[in-house]
Amino acid sequence: MNKHFISAFVTGLIFGLGLLVSGMANPDKVLSFLDIAGAWDPSLAFVMGGAIAVGAVAFTLIKGRTHSLWGEPLRLPGKKDLDSRLIMGSLGFGIGWGLAGFCPGPALVAFGTGAPKAIVFVIAMVAGMAIYEVIEKSRAKPVN
């Protein structure tokens, strides 16, 4: 099997384990972080800090390169403009995140525990992503 497929699986696994260790897979903890007016749990700021510190090293290393260490073309987002899709989408995401305490990564990990509530959330999230695809496709086609 191609090594890129193995690294995709291993990356997903490490990412998932990191979410479990950090506490981010627990919606109650996420909501305590977002509740700055209540009994605030600042832990998740440490998750972001730790992840960004390591990530920043990697993204500095690949600066100026066109290919990964394994010779794959680097696929970095090329968009630069702060369009309304980015801003409205991100504002909307924060609302959904604050409602249940789940963002996509932790939701997938929680799904893997078999918790019925996490399974329902993931099904709804994938349905939401499918709705996006349908809307985008209907936009791409001119209506006669």
């Binding site: 409205m88 989408g89 609302i95 959904g96 995140w97 709804a124 999230m125 349905a127 939401g128 709705i131």
Partner: peptide
């Protein structure tokens, strides 16, 4: 929440 997260993270 799932629907909102799904649609808006894609947008």
């Amino acid at each position: 929440a799932g629907l909102v997260v799904g649609i808006s993270t894609r947008y």
